[in-house]
Design a protein around this nucleic acid. Structure first.
Lengths: 234, 234
DNA sequence: TCTATAATTTGAACACTGTTCACAGTATAG
DNA sequence: CTATACTGTGAACAGTGTTCAAATTATAGA
């Protein structure tokens, strides 16, 4: 029977552990994520950490959940500060925030969208919800644009492969998402396209070819919205 | 002064080491890449391996170069076996081979396009050439389609950001690539778009949403070529 | 306030990891 | 046949995640 007070302190130490972990990751990359190094950082013995996290994997999972939520926060913030609610500018702001967050938090991004720790596989039932949170920001804006008519799915993105549409429909009904299959589809299309650029930039595969990745990315965001069927200019 | 005969045997052992490494990776993921495990596998002491590879990183680099070349082989093979040289079907075949190779060689793919080993960073001067080899297959086909008029860059992909075009032009001249900046640009656009899908599929981020990733990917390949400005139907 | 109980920290141990180095054995070349 | 270069050995070092009993500390109830 853990009392209120005890539980609060436990949570405090857990936070301290995570902060030390993030500090080490920022310095030495995802390679710096060592249980013993964390213990050293906060003046504890390695074994002591096991009272707060069952294993290093559990700690990583906690960091991943935090990272997904931080990304979602960044996307939501971009949506709020962007000019004109319901405008396409809001969507471009969010899509650009996606890359900006990735580039300013490379280790966190690798943690969630790469496979940075050998032997570790994230438990989906824990990590999926915060993923949805971030993705919902994009899909929500697309849904708005579709409903206001600013966006009208244009060929070839106006047709959804039947197998895919069925799955999306199931997902929407099962989890009660307030969006259309169309918005979800366009969201996935956009997400995958831009994610590829970020992933290649992150590991330095595209910069040597394209040079200025930022301009390329911005251009691709606009090209994406145009091909998806945006009616207004950006 | 290493003689012919000696060098040949060295190369044989090096191959044996790499094969053991690939076997372990296939079984235990990139996590299985342990110098000591490899040594065990081929009945050697860990220290013995240092006569063939200066360090684990050197071995990883060798595996990466092999993987990039294997990927390039797969793309070239897809190009050769596809019906109708110079046709768009050839390009779709190659683009689909890209994903197929990734999915049938997940550890190799993670090795080259992720950052699977903590603390390891690939030396670009060694890894870039085989990257170019694979990429050239795609860009070469695009160049063909552009010249034969089957592909005519359509809005919005008919304009190249000036900063990007300048860089591409420099690259073409410096390395003597027999392609246009336009082909290179469209190649990068397509590459990044599809790479995003593969990357998200690899780490199981997209399958839960979209269900049948294969159909989604095939649809996106076709959508890509259409938006890039393909004149003929697929 | 004192005590019984729960929470926390300790320290040692185990089985791993990559890497270095002097040494012994083996094959090669002159 | 011998001197030399090559190859593998074995021990050691510093690091890793993890487990467990013991010791310490803090909490809660009387």
């Amino acid at each position: 029977m853990p009392s209120e007070r005890v539980e609060q302190r436990r949570e405090g130490v857990r936070e301290e552990i995570k902060q030390a972990a993030r500090r080490l990751m920022a310095e030495h990359g995802t390679a710096g994520l060592s249980l013993r190094a964390i213990a050293r950082e906060i003046n504890m013995l390695p074994s002591g950490l096991y009272h707060y996290y069952g294993s290093l994997d559990d700690l990583i999972t906690a960091l991943i959940v935090d990272a997904f939520n931080a990304l979602a926060d960044a996307l939501e913030a971009a949506r709020e500060t962007a000019a004109g609610p319901g405008s396409a500018a809001q969507l471009t702001a969010v899509l650009e925030a996606y890359r900006r967050w990735a580039m300013t938090h490379p280790t966190d991004f690798q943690l969630i969208y790469g496979n940075p720790i050998p032997g570790y596989a994230a438990p989906r039932e824990i990590t999926v919800p915060p993923v949805i949170r971030g993705f919902s920001v994009i899909v929500g804006l697309i849904e708005n644009l579709l409903q206001s008519g600013v966006l009208e799915a244009a060929p070839p993105y106006d047709v959804i492969p039947p197998e895919v549409e069925a799955r999306l429909q199931t997902l929407i009904e099962r989890d009660g998402y307030p969006v259309s299959a169309r918005a979800l589809f366009l969201g996935v299309v956009g997400w995958t396209q831009l994610h590829g650029i970020i992933m290649l930039e992150m590991f330095n595969h595209i910069q040597p070819v394209i040079g200025d990745v930022e301009t390329f990315y911005r251009a691709q965001v606009i090209n994406l919205l145009k091909t998806l069927g945006l009616k207004t200019a950006i």
